[in-house]
Nucleic acid binder design. Structure first.
Length: 366
RNA sequence: GGAGAGGUGGCUGAGCGGUUAAAAGCAGCAGACUGUAAAUCUGCCGGGCCUAGCGCCCUACGGAGGUUCGAACCCUCCCCUCUCCA
């Protein structure tokens, strides 16, 4: 993996990551395909939207179908018939999201499978090994993502363990996949600073900000991100994990973030919450019942080119599978288009005005 | 013609003397969703009033009477459905 910085516009950066599965123009949004599938889309449909990288999840693939099987079938790219880049989360997020069925120890985390109750152990070594065996382009270090309510002491201890795990993750690297480290530290600036110093000092190919958007207020999230991002080394990709809304992405880019992932466009699509240039559209709302306009006249995605709001509402209200397909195609297109616009704006040194123009439309009432 | 069962809020369907403006589900209306245990979850859901309170007043469990301090729940008559036998 190689990262080149192409140009800057203020703190915003435009760059290019080169992998064995193509190049990735940054800033980039990575659609989330937890189970080697972006929910509601076939691989071909996903490919037609043009993302250069997607995210898969180690914990979920470990349970089903199993890393052994994926390896045996020729790797995770071949398995899902995807020839562009893949990044996997290490399972660190499941330490947070599945906290009720797991036990954290110094050596790793014991999970009770949410599927059948079977016992599974994830450690830095095992997680990195599995990610490499699946053949992903970018693997993530195994970390502990602490919940928002924790005391400063708990967050600090957790962070220090994540640091120890970071070194162990690195030691398990064979070179088959790039490996990113993850900064923790909750909402505490001094902890974030220490975490950056520690993680950045290690030989990671990129650095991620983790443990964000886990229940803290928007202000705390933005403060943490804005404080931490500039501390990250500029010669490596900076990845803000799990974020976020369109506004969050603009704020992230402005702070110098290069990579984002978030379930928001895909999950919200399935729940009928659609992003348009004029703001969010809750497609189930009665006011769209007879609305024959395209969802977003400014959008050129397949959904907006071919069907009306009235039809999208009809599909959603009737629980038609096509509702999820159309909505996911649109929301992902919206995110990918937003990032394309951001890259072009940075290239022409007009990010600030691009951001303002986008936000004034997006925040203006629908 | 005979025997039996039943009629409850937009629908299905609990309730069977007071704690019932009436369970639950559906439908309807709105909201949430941030490294996915999510095609999920939450709230509202007869009407009106205001000093907005676990407040007051209407209307409501096929219809009309009755018993009772009190009835969707008990009694009488009527109307209407459904099943079975002729």
């Amino acid at each position: 993996m190689k990262f080149e910085l192409l140009n800057r516009d203020g703190s915003a950066r435009r760059g290019r990551i080169t992998t064995a599965h193509g190049t990735i123009e940054t800033p980039v949004f990575m659609p989330v395909g937890t189970l080697a599938s972006v929910k509601a889309l076939t691989t071909e449909q996903l490919a037609s939207l043009g993302p250069e990288i997607v995210l898969n999840n180690t914990y979920h693939l470990m349970l089903r179908p199993g890393v052994e099987l994926i390896e045996k079938l020729g790797g995770v790219h071949k398995f899902q018939s995807w020839d562009r880049a893949i990044l996997t989360d290490s399972g660190g997020f499941q330490v947070f999201s599945l906290s009720s069925i797991r036990k954290v120890r110094e050596d790793g985390v014991e999970f009770r499978s949410h599927i059948d109750g079977s016992l599974h152990f994830l450690s830095p070594e095992r997680s990195v090994d599995m990610q490499q065996r699946m053949g992903v382009d970018i693997a993530m270090a195994f970390d502990e993502c602490p919940p928002y309510g924790w005391s400063r002491e708990q967050v600090e201890q957790s962070m220090e363990m994540t640091h120890r795990w970071a070194r162990r993750s690195l030691a398990a690297r064979t070179g088959r996949s790039a490996l990113f480290g993850i900064v923790q530290g909750g909402t505490h600036r001094d902890l974030r600073k220490r975490s950056v110093e520690e993680i950045a000092s290690l030989e990671f190919d990129g650095i991620a900000i983790g443990g964000v958007a886990v229940g803290e207020t928007k202000e705390e999230m933005l403060d943490t991100m804005r404080f931490t991002a500039p501390l990250l080394p500029s010669d490596r990709p900076r990845y803000l994990m799990g974020v976020g809304t369109p506004e969050d992405l603009l704020d992230g880019v402005e702070a110098g973030i290069d990579m984002f992932d978030c379930v928001m466009p895909t999950r919200n699509a399935r729940n009928g919450s659609l992003f348009t240039s004029a703001g969010k559209v809750a497609i189930k709302n009665a006011k769209y019942a007879a609305d024959d306009r395209p969802l977003d006249p400014m959008c050129s995605c397949m959904t907006c080119r071919t069907v009306s709001r009235a039809y999208l509402r009809h599909l959603y209200v009737n629980d038609e599978i096509a509702a999820s397909v159309y909505n996911t195609i649109h929301n992902l297109s919206f995110y990918l288009d937003l990032l394309l616009g951001i890259r072009q704006a940075i290239a022409s040194n007009s990010f600030a005005s691009f951001r303002e123009a986008f936000l004034s439309r997006f925040r203006g009432s629908e």
